[in-house]
Structure formats: structure tokens, C-alpha cells
Design a protein around this nucleic acid. Structure first.
Lengths: 141, 141
DNA sequence: ATATCAGATTAGATTCATTCTAAATTATTC
DNA sequence: GAATAATTTAGAATGAATCTAATCTGATAT
């Protein structure tokens, strides 16, 4: 997604494409990691020192509500964010807490009796274990 | 798990079975919901008004480290907790944010090339959609 | 080009969630 | 009962996120 696509996706959802909002979106789209709001603010503020922490939070909230960004479900104090591009699962390292993308694949749905009358929209898998940095060299699998 | 089992599981992990710690553990074990630390503190403090918020937080941290309690991966500001009993998946409602247990079933592991050299310990599924309270009466499935 | 309006930004204050601190208490062991 | 170490306490402190009122800025109309 390039600059024009970002603009179109923002305006298509009734959001103005301000430099600050664009910067948040661009930061997330080129980030493979799942940054916290503070990390996003630091990255955005590095390029434009006048930009405000509250603006970054406001923009994140608006982008999540607009469906362009998602908050990643992870444990820990700070929320983490992800631009909604290709769907993917997540891998969370038990040791260092790092969150990585894992290629999407459809998981089988659970038995109907488990789901009951709920309306299922998505099944996301959270994998846990040790990431490549934290795994021992000769891992048994 | 009854009182004696709680005591044994605490002491088996080098933790004293204090009334406050027992109360946190018991609260989580009889709670089907996934309470926040504040909700746990309120419940525990209701029964023993002298108990301290810091104690509840300290005990939650110790219980998580001891492997008796787990922090549930959800979005939002406050962490949520779950006693580790039977393994289960979670369902998060898009509308009300409620977190419910879904019976465990093993999901197929992803392709080896997706996982690479990571060491996989667990695959938890997060289901999202509308819970039974929020779903329309005649839901299409 | 100017005026108007509504969305957005700003900077610091405020709130919420969680952790820290030092003193006191309590459970365990001898 | 004494000693020791774990734990609790109550409030302070910190980190994360939100609020506020004033100001700025982009879009639109003229």
C-alpha cells in the first residue's frame, strides 16, 4: 500500500489524511513488529518533533475504529498495534515477549455445541513458545 | 480443585498459602469470567476489607509466574486473568468485549516453513464475533 | 483570495492500571 | 518462644492512556 492507497483508505472511511495520521499509518505498514503506542509515537515524533503523543493515541483509536488498524491481543501492560493488511496469526515468545507474524491458514471451526448461539467472525491463532532468538540451537520438535 | 488442592499446588511451587493468596486463587477458580485485577481485588476485599490492592497484584504476579494462573490475551487497558485448570480457547465479543471459554480442541499446526526454527509450545485460538447476548436472534451461520 | 466551519492537533493535566517502598505482620522452622 | 524469611500493608510513584481547552488546519463556499 503506497501513499495514495493510504490516502484513499483514510478518506474512504471519513478520516482526513493529515500528515500525522498518515505518519502513523505508514509507520505501522512498514513495521513487521507490533509496536506499542509509545514506540509509534517515538517513530512519528522522530520525523516530526512537533507531533504530539495525544495525537498519536487519537489517531490509533480512530484507525482501529475505522478498521484500518487492529490492536493485537497480547499480554502485558502496553497495547500493541498492527496495520490490517494480509491476515495473519501471531507468535508470542515465552521468554522475550516478542510478537511475530505467522502466515494465515484457516483453522477448523470448533464443534457447533461449543460455539452455541454465538456468531463467529474470525478464528485467530496465538502460538506460544520460543522465538528463533530464544530457542536453543538444537531444538527438539 | 478444593481448598486442600489449592494449598498443595501453592506449596508445591514454593509459595506460602496465605489467606490473601488463597482468596485470589479461589476467586479465579470459581469465576467463569476473566476478571481484571481490579475486579479480583474488589471480590477479595469484599470478604476481607483489610486486604490490600498491592497484595492482590503481588499475588497475581506470583501465581502467573508459578504457572497456576494465566493472563488472558485480550485487547483493552486492563489485564485479565484465568486460573489454569482445563485448557480452553477464548471467545471475545466484538460488541461488549466479554471473554468466554470455549472447549479446547487441538488445531492443526501450521506448515513447518511458517514456524521455522521457533519452538512451539501451544496453539491457542481466539474466536471473535458476537456473543449470545449480542448476536441477533436469527443469526445466519 | 477570503471567510467559515468542522476535524484535528497540541501540551499539559488528569485518570486508570500497575508497581514500588519501607515498615509492620505473619507463617514456617527450629 | 525465637529467629528468619516471606508476605502484607497503605500510600507514593510510575507507566499507559485519556481529557481539556485553546489553537491550528484542511475543505468548502463565495
Amino acid at each position: 500500500m503506497n501513499a495514495e492507497e493510504i490516502r484513499q483508505s483514510l478518506e474512504g472511511r471519513g478520516l482526513r489524511c493529515t500528515p500525522q495520521r498518515y505518519a502513523v499509518m505508514a509507520f505501522l505498514m512498514e513495521s513487521n513488529r507490533h509496536p506499542t503506542a509509545a514506540e509509534i509515537f517515538e517513530g512519528v515524533n522522530h520525523m516530526d518533533p512537533r507531533s504530539s503523543r495525544a495525537t498519536t493515541y487519537n489517531n490509533l483509536r480512530d484507525l482501529v475504529q475505522a478498521g484500518l488498524v487492529r490492536e493485537v491481543a497480547v499480554e502485558g501492560r502496553a497495547a500493541r498495534f498492527d496495520a490490517k493488511g494480509m491476515r495473519h496469526h501471531h507468535f508470542i515468545c515465552d521468554r522475550c515477549g516478542n510478537v511475530e507474524d505467522i502466515e494465515w491458514y484457516n483453522v477448523p471451526r470448533p464443534a457447533s455445541k461449543s460455539i452455541g448461539k454465538r456468531v463467529l467472525r474470525e478464528c485467530e491463532v496465538i502460538f506460544r513458545g520460543l522465538c528463533t532468538k530464544c530457542a536453543p540451537r538444537h531444538a527438539t520438535r
